[in-house]
Write a protein that binds this DNA or RNA. Structure first.
Lengths: 223, 223
DNA sequence: TATTCAAAGTGTAGAATATACACTATAAAA
DNA sequence: TTTTATAGTGTATATTCTACACTTTGAATA
């Protein structure tokens, strides 16, 4: 049964100090051989979120990933076949927590690959705009949603956390001020553990106390 | 031709010191006789934004209204007929600037009426959640989008502006601090005009300098 | 075991911003 | 002229933000 309803997904991860997005090389017209955000049709009896989860699993092998809706696109001229309604999502994955397969199991795309978010190839459809919208949205939401923590393993160092903030905000931050602010929030649990496997002084590990985080920000509105 | 694609619209205005939402009393099943957000099917050859504009015009007689997308809903169980894909928008109208007709010209609803946003009747479908989402979104966006000004006439007093902020944030603000802050931003143009038709000291009128507003906030990200 | 290396970790002073708070000025109406 | 209802205004204190550089630590290696 033909469907004109699709989801596209901005899958983001953090690797080697950089924010990265997973792109797929298309194997179908239109835009065959172009890089694009992973996306696919939603089955008629399938919930939209399940379709996103399916795409995530096919492309990364990961389940139970944080995701949120971004925006919908319904332009009559987006696709030669007529109106294709696309709901764009973003998903945040913990890249370091697992060996990622980047070979998709589907045949409508040739390969999937991680790219630095500020340095992507030309993208199919309006996917560049979707990506930019996503990055802008993340910058805003960073201030009141635990976005940074979804990109990190459960236990992380303050330097890793700062790198995630810097990657999303696209600017460098002062180390001392960053730590002061984060620790003043009071939602970081200092662990009795340190990093392992580094050839220099190991940094202390922290965990997010999500309840305290949400409590802290639930009623925080500007002004 | 049957369509399963609809738009719903949270139409907001400011009247008598209160933020109000326009609701429609349904004349069709399901939820016949319930109050609901105005919404309707999008024609197959119609752009989604045009459908929103149409609904706005049918319900308020207004054109050229500020609007923005909120969220999309595609749950299989939202409607007995099966999946109805709904994209929710919000629109901000200048209620005082014109005589509003609140009798809709359509026959799928009985009447339309303005309600205070924090005191609405029970709503059809998931429309209460959509309204709540809208209010939350507005609170966030108030800090970096000219939302308050879309709800006011071109020329407004600082007290009116403060009332809009208070209505959206749902809390009272200090008069002197509010004025200080607004005037420090530097995007308000003080006019050589005052209010007319009031039985007490007339307040000075102001205009928004939209260019300065956007310049001020385009790169303002928390942290 | 002493040295090197690379990153971890730490404090303070000054600037800017936010907050709390109450009276006088003004214009129209009575 | 008095009343009324809102407009309009300043200051002191607390809080938050910003800029800035050196010491500590632990592993690797010479």
């Amino acid at each position: 049964m033909y469907s004109n309803f699709t989801v596209d997904c901005v899958i983001l991860g953090f690797h080697e100090g950089e924010l990265k997005v997973l792109l797929a090389e298309r194997n179908e017209y239109p835009f065959k051989d172009w890089w694009a955000l992973p996306g696919f049709f939603v089955d008629n009896d399938e919930e939209m979120e399940d379709a996103v989860k399916r795409i995530l699993y096919e492309n990364t092998g990961l389940k139970d990933v944080f995701m949120d809706q971004l925006h919908s696109f319904a332009g009559l001229k987006r696709h030669p076949k007529g109106r294709i309604l696309t709901v764009a999502y973003y998903a945040l994955v913990q890249l370091d927590s697992t060996k990622l397969k980047t070979k998709p199991v589907t045949n409508y795309m040739k390969q999937a690959k991680w790219f630095p978010v500020r340095n992507v190839p030309e993208l199919a459809f309006d996917h560049k705009q979707i990506l930019d919208l996503c990055l802008e949205r993340l910058q805003r939401r960073l201030a009141y949603k635990p976005i940074a923590f979804e990109l990190l393993p459960e236990k992380f160092t303050l330097t890793q956390l700062q790198l995630v903030y810097e990657g999303i905000l696209n600017k460098t931050l002062d180390k001392r001020n960053f730590r002061k602010k984060m620790q003043n929030y009071g939602f970081l649990k200092e662990l009795d553990e340190v990093q392992t496997g580094v050839a220099y002084r190991a940094a202390r590990l922290y965990k997010l106390d999500k309840r305290k985080f949400l409590k802290h920000f639930q009623n925080t509105v500007a002004f």
